[in-house]
Amino acid sequence: AVSDRLIGRKGVVMEAISPQNSALVKVDGETWRATSGTVLDVGEEVSVKAIEGVKLVVEKLE
């Protein structure tokens, strides 16, 4: 799938994300809905860990 190429890519949080709420991230110039197990604020850099349906699963870039 096209989205599989995004695993391992870096992105930027466009809307705050919490474990209860998905929000938008920008990866390679494209906007995607994403979820995370932690709270992520706007502007934080993230890494794509997986794809669940049409959502990216991201975590904060260390």
Rank of each mutant, 00 (worst) to 15 (best):
I17P: 13
V13D: 01
T31D: 06
D41N: 14
V42N: 02
V48A: 01
E15C: 14
L56Q: 00
G37E: 14
G8D: 03
W32Y: 15
W32L: 03
E62G: 12
V48W: 02
V12K: 06
V12R: 07
K26E: 10
S36A: 09
T38V: 10
R5A: 08
E15R: 09
Q20N: 13
V57W: 08
E59P: 02
S3H: 11
T31Q: 08
E52Q: 11
E15V: 11
L40M: 06
T31H: 08
V58C: 03
D41Q: 14
E62K: 11
P19R: 08
V42E: 06
S47F: 15
E62H: 12
E44D: 15
V57F: 08
V57I: 11
V46M: 02
V58D: 00
M14C: 09
S47D: 04
L24W: 13
R33W: 15
V48D: 02
G53C: 04
G37F: 14
K60F: 03
S22T: 12
P19G: 14
V57E: 03
S36Y: 07
R9I: 05
E59Y: 05
V25K: 03
E30P: 00
T35H: 06
G53S: 04
I51W: 07
A34P: 01
G8T: 03
M14L: 13
L6D: 00
T38E: 13
L61W: 12
E52K: 09
L56A: 01
P19L: 10
V2F: 12
S47M: 15
S47L: 15
I7V: 08
V27I: 13
D4H: 14
K10T: 12
A34Q: 02
A16Q: 09
V54R: 12
V2T: 09
G8S: 03
V58F: 01
G8A: 03
I7G: 01
E30S: 06
G29D: 08
E59A: 09
S22Q: 09
E52M: 11
G29K: 05
G53I: 03
G11E: 03
D41V: 15
L6G: 00
T35Y: 10
N21G: 14
S18D: 08
